[in-house]
Simulated scan of single mutants.
Amino acid sequence: MNKDFWYGVFPAITTKFTAEEELDMDACMVGIEAQLEAGVNGIVLGGSLGEASTLTEEEKFKLTAATVAKVAGRVPVIFNIAEQSTKVAVHQAQKAAELGVDGLMVLPPLRYFASEEETVAFFSAVAEHTSLPIMIYNNPIDYKIHVTLDMFEQLKKYPNIQAVKESTRDVGNVTRMLNRFGDRFKILTGVDPLALESILIGAHGWVAGLVDAFPKETVAIFRLAKEGRHEEAIQIYRWFLPLLDLDIHPKLVQYIKLAEVATGTGTEYVRSPRLVLKGAERERIQKVIDDALAIRPELPEGSWGVLKAV
């Protein structure tokens, strides 16, 4: 396992379903293995891309247990908590620990526009009731609550609050966090079309979406950027950008799952109220995918794959 826990590419894994909207555990494990073969640094389960809001608690824990067994310690497994109740969030954190996860990604309270005091209290309660490392998901665009630098100042007293998924869509926030806190909080960019820019100015990792369909390319961009091979990273990123833009649409789940079908890493089935793409919209997204596949770049040797211990 990477000695630097919050470093590298962490796929936000899609949850695979059958046509009848049941969990497709076999397809889930195929997708996990594709990520591990590409050399990702961690696995994030049950996020918004994983359709967490449609999963029962029993399904979340079933998927978590199976993933922990599949990964078998090769990389950290991160369990996502997105709840409106502090009590339920704490319960899920404790249950996830029992199942063997390595860390948590925690959203602020959902459905209620919590105040700064309430949001800090929510994160604090989770941190106080688990020893697992925590990454706070900061996404005011989609979840309305902005976890400000002053709020991180209050939260830094908890040693297990260690990282942030930076999804404010303000690249400058990476620098603001680094200027104020140095290396206290690891910063993982969470917006695919801003990923390379964020990495080049200091982000430690990338919680990625299109990685589900293109794991090797995602890993290659991150590694090349961190190795100072910027021109090689930029060339792949320019090719990738039309696909990465799919990550910031309300139908990102359907779009990314359609890409997974094209690359053999998943299925397109979703759970209602989401519906499988059809008509002109499907044709438009399929064209984006097909156009990219037609000119898919050859990746530099050694830019992806499992790194051997030295």
Results as ranks from 00 to 15, higher is better:
Gly39Asn: 10
Val253Thr: 14
Val164Gln: 09
Ile43Cys: 04
Tyr137Leu: 01
Pro133Asp: 07
Ile161Phe: 11
His146Gln: 13
Lys165Asn: 04
Leu149Ile: 05
Ala69Arg: 14
Asn160Lys: 12
Pro193Tyr: 04
Glu197Ala: 15
Ile81Ala: 11
Asp24Pro: 02
Lys278Tyr: 07
Ile295Met: 02
Pro76Asp: 12
Thr265Met: 10
Lys3Gln: 10
Lys257Cys: 02
Lys3Glu: 12
Leu224Asp: 06
Asp245Ala: 03
Val44Ile: 13
Glu83Pro: 02
His249Trp: 00
Val101Trp: 03
Ile32Cys: 10
Ala280His: 07
Gly39Val: 07
His91Gly: 00
Gln162His: 08
Val253Asn: 12
Ser53Arg: 00
Thr56Gly: 14
Ala114Val: 14
Met135Ile: 08
Thr130Val: 07
Phe222Pro: 03
Val77Ile: 13
Glu21Leu: 01
Thr67Cys: 15
Leu307Glu: 14
Ala27Gln: 15
Ile256Ala: 06
Arg223Gln: 01
Leu252His: 15
Pro109Asp: 12
Val147Gly: 01
Leu132Ser: 09
Ala69Lys: 15
Ile236Arg: 06
Arg274Phe: 14
Leu293Trp: 11
Thr263Asp: 12
Ile32Asn: 08
Ile145Pro: 01
Gly46Pro: 08
Leu194Ile: 07
Leu275Phe: 12
Ala262Gly: 08
Lys278Arg: 03
Leu194Gln: 14
Lys70Gln: 15
Ala195Trp: 01
Ile234Glu: 05
Val44Thr: 06
Lys251Val: 00
Asn138Tyr: 00
Thr56Trp: 05
Phe5Met: 13
Ser115His: 00
Asp192Thr: 07
Ile285Glu: 09
Ile289Asn: 09
Ser272Asp: 09
Ala72Gln: 03
Glu301Tyr: 00
Val90Tyr: 11
Ile13Asn: 04
Gly266Glu: 08
Asn139Ile: 13
Ala203His: 02
Ala96Ile: 02
Ala262Ile: 01
His91Ala: 06
Ile134Thr: 06
Ile201Met: 05
Glu22Cys: 11
Val253Leu: 05
Glu116His: 15
Phe240Met: 15
Gly202Met: 10
Ala294Lys: 06
Leu293Arg: 08
Leu241Gly: 01
Gly182Phe: 10
Pro159His: 13
Leu45Gln: 07
Gly182Leu: 08
Lys3Thr: 12
Glu260Gly: 04
Lys257Tyr: 11
Glu116Cys: 06
Trp304Val: 09
His249Lys: 13
Leu178Trp: 01
Gln94Phe: 05
Phe17Ala: 12
Ser53Gln: 01
Ile234Tyr: 05
Lys60Met: 14
Trp206Pro: 09
Glu231Leu: 10
Leu224His: 08
Gln254Ile: 03
Ala195Asn: 05
Tyr237Met: 00
Ala96Lys: 03
Pro133Leu: 05
Val310Thr: 12
Glu59Gln: 13
Arg229Met: 12
Val68Leu: 13
Val164Met: 14
Glu22Leu: 09
Ala27Trp: 11
Pro76Gln: 09
Leu196Tyr: 04
Glu283Gly: 02
Ala280Asp: 14
Glu260Thr: 09
Leu63Glu: 07
Gly103Ala: 15
Ser85Ile: 00
Gly31Ser: 14
Val276Ser: 13
Lys16Ala: 13
Glu227Phe: 05
Phe123Asn: 08
Pro300Glu: 04
Phe181Trp: 02
Glu51Arg: 02
Glu33Asp: 15
Leu252Pro: 06
